[in-house]
Amino acid sequence: MARVEFAAALQRHVHCAAQQVEARTVREALDAVFAQQGALRSYVLDDQAALRRHVAIFIDGEQLRDRRQLSDRVHADAQIYVVQALSGG
């Protein structure tokens, strides 16, 4: 199963424990997480269900390519890491 993990900066705002999920794409992986932790969805995705502009996702160390559809494939034991982009002051 793929493992989805969230950066500490996000955990400050909303409960988001790491989860093991069955998924073929990043979209499926996140949907599986949101099914368990619904409040998390709007922190990661925008109104159009695209990845928020200042959030990044890495799959086994590779940055997500399809930020709109989240169609990047994930393999069975992928490590998916959701992290805030660096900005602000």
Partner: peptide
Amino acid sequence: NLGHFGVK
């Protein structure tokens, strides 16, 4: 207006 995680 959380910079990374949107409006709450």
